[in-house]
Design a protein around this nucleic acid. Structure first.
Length: 623
RNA sequence: GCGCCGGUAGCUCAGCUGGAUAGAGCAUCAGGCUUCGAACCUGAGGGUCGGGGGUUCGAAUCCCUCCCGGCGUGCCA
């Protein structure tokens, strides 16, 4: 409100001074607070007003000073630095938070839109790891950020529960499982099935290596075809060997019994063979149950759950329709493709020559189905950046098919999570398991909580709740504070530390405020307060920070980047801790000033909680 | 080869549609708890924003080029 009011004043003043209406007022929070509370960028105005920035700034400074909430205005190097009346800053921020804390920071970027956010989409053959956690947290936080921007959001998960990769764990279990169950082993279903996936991989490797040793000709012919790199330079022998073995996992699949068995199983599954289907039902049931536990622990949830086993045939109708419209065309070999070269993409097959569906066929189908079933006008997929090309193609196809909502399809492509030693590798056992990581961080958080309770009065249940909340905040924050599109390094050792730019620090700042407010009591805080008593620089900084929140949430929605919220939280907490250090509250003798500070504290605590909430991070009143 | 993304302090990362002396945390060093919870605060050192050109009143940000790293470039997902 205050910012809108000031923008309106600026617009009016500009109109009166220069006789022009400027739509977008370049009002910013200055990089350095010593410049002022707000700043008007005359360089940008100069474009609209066709004048020299310095002159414009000076004229505006003259007429803006003393206007409404503006105490003074100074022209400095093309900027109009505004200093606001303290009362305006505090009256413009604190009461509007306290009036309705849950609504403060809402914006209208996506007002009235119906959006789906699909995230997680795991393979149901092994447990989730650190990379999935980034996806889960990003998707969840994004859905909250979009809802905060006025959209109606439907969250969706898609289980990749069919295909050769699923058959691998099934096959290994069938051959070596000896009827083990989660109950008989005491293992979580996804972890148990994951073990068989790994077992398949190692048995496959054994068979492969034996076969390769017996058939040296195969490598020889591979070398002939792939012996050079793209520039025509010969590749080193060991490098070539590695490449050959990797390619064997697909090209050599039928050459060894385990690969053949896997293909047989997939065919049997597709033919709805009763035995295979029963085995599949059993194993995917275990994995899904395990995932549901993990999701609950991570605090994420879904409104709609799709399974690839139910949607994989979806899309053929769309291909037919597109074919009739001339969007797709049938090639001589029978495959159906689309030519996207005019849009700087390539040609893309959308249906195999034998009429079977591929990945993109299914995505075409589900995209249309989702939009129809949920009456969507936009969709977001949270999927790793290795699939950027796939989604470019998918979105272009939707556009060519003529769907109006095609322009509102977004791929939130996030980067890989690496360890300090490099990328996670299944083979080398460096994959960080999601459940293990969470319980380890929870254990360390519990130690910290207990260390701060020397009298041992805390109930075990309280320790548990605090430890879990702190652990979750640590992990969430660590994964969300980095801009989604960037690859990131995740240091497990860092994630169990609780000072610095961490989730724990955020929670701590909140808990300190809440206990302070609690100690003061509602009566002492009262209904109203004389906010004009707040004159300390740290109080002012805090209030200005609160004022900036709505702009941040809007930007987070625009950029599909919860990281903006995370960075806002760090700034808010920094201001909060400084305020806490310098401004006594309960110890303040002046009753009216004490009350005013309590109001400011409450507003700050509410905003902190709101911002953390947008990241899916519950806060604590005590730690 | 072509395409996309990245390269900012010793390390991990911010830096909004180009804007003021490039910021934070960690680590290092020096301070602050009989004082509302020290998971905190204060100070110091640490930068050719990968290199080189260009556009501009102004470039970490935009354009060109080169170097380095990651990922794509399937009738796989």
């Amino acid at each position: 409100m205050l910012l809108e009011q000031i923008a309106a004043l600026c617009r009016q003043t500009i109109n009166e001074t220069f006789g022009k209406i400027v739509e977008r007022i370049p009002l910013e929070f200055p990089a350095d607070r010593s410049f002022g509370d707000l700043t008007l960028n005359a360089f940008q105005l100069a474009r609209d007003l066709k004048g020299a920035p310095a002159g414009i700034a000076e004229e505006l400074a003259r007429s803006l000073g003393g206007l409404g909430p503006i105490e003074s205005a100074a022209a400095v190097k093309g900027f109009v630095n505004l200093r606001l009346i303290p009362e305006a800053i505090f009256d413009g921020s604190v009461p509007s938070v306290l009036r309705n804390p849950d609504a403060f920071g809402r914006n209208r970027e996506l007002d009235g839109r119906r959006m789906m956010v699909e995230y997680s989409a795991p393979n149901t053959n092994k447990p989730q790891h650190l990379g999935h956690m980034r996806n889960d947290f990003l998707g969840h936080a994004l859905s909250l950020v979009l809802a905060n921007a006025g959209a109606t959001v439907v969250t969706a998960n898609l289980y990749n529960d069919r295909g050769t990769h699923i058959c691998k764990s099934m096959l290994a279990y069938e051959q070596w499982g000896e009827g083990q169950t989660p109950e008989s082993t005491g293992k979580k279903g996804d972890h148990l099935v994951g073990e068989y996936y790994l077992l398949f991989e190692s048995k496959f490797k054994e068979e492969r290596d034996a076969w390769v040793a017996e058939n040296p000709d195969d490598f020889a012919s591979f070398k002939e075809q792939n012996g050079t790199d793209r520039k025509g330079k010969p590749l080193a022998e060991d490098q070539l060997r590695k490449k050959y073995l990797t390619s064997f996992n697909e090209a050599g699949f039928e050459k060894i019994p385990l690969g053949l068995a896997c293909q047989d199983m997939l065919r049997a599954w597709e033919a709805e063979d009763a035995t295979v289907r029963a085995l599949w039902e059993k194993l995917t049931g275990w994995v899904v149950a395990g995932f549901e536990k993990t999701y609950a622990d991570l605090g994420v949830s879904f409104d709609a759950v799709f399974r690839e086993s139910e949607t994989w045939l979806e899309g053929k109708d769309e291909i037919e329709k597109g074919l009739a419209k001339g969007v797709f065309k049938k090639r001589d070999d029978g495959a159906i493709e689309i030519d996207l070269r005019a849009d700087k993409l390539d040609r893309k097959v959308v249906l195999r020559s034998d009429g079977t569906a591929i990945y993109i066929t299914q995505d075409i189908g589900t995209t249309v189905k989702k939009a129809a079933d949920h009456d969507l006008d936009g969709q977001v997929w949270v999927v790793g950046n290795e699939q950027i090309y796939h989604f470019k193609v998918l979105f272009k196809i939707m556009e060519r098919l003529g769907y109006a909502w095609a322009e509102n399809l977004h791929h939130l492509a996030y980067g890989m999570v690496n360890l300090p030693e490099g990328r996670m590798k299944t083979r080398e056992g460096t994959v960080v398991d999601a459940d293990d990581l969470l319980s380890e961080v929870t254990r360390l958080a519990a130690e910290e909580v207990l260390a701060r309770d020397p009298t041992g009065e805390l109930l075990a249940a309280d320790v548990e709740v605090r430890a879990r909340t702190i652990a979750l905040a640590s992990l969430r924050f660590m994964l969300l504070k980095v801009a989604p599109k960037n690859d990131m390094t995740f240091d497990p050792a860092e994630s169990v530390k609780f000072d610095g730019d961490t989730g724990a620090r955020i929670l701590y700042a909140h808990a300190r405020l809440r206990t302070l407010l609690n100690d003061a009591g509602d009566q002492a805080i009262g209904e109203g307060a004389d906010l004009s008593l707040l004159v300390h620089e740290m109080e002012r900084n805090l209030a200005l920070q609160i004022l900036s929140f709505t702009g941040i949430t809007a930007r987070a929605a625009r950029d599909l980047s919860p990281a903006h919220i995370a960075n806002f939280l760090l700034e808010l907490v920094r201001d909060l801790n400084r305020f806490y250090d310098r401004c006594p509250v309960l110890k303040e003798d002046d009753e009216n000033l004490r009350r005013a500070r309590l109001h400011l504290c409450r507003a700050a605590a509410d905003v902190l909680k709101r911002a953390a909430g947008l990241l899916g991070m519950p806060v604590l009143d005590r730690m």
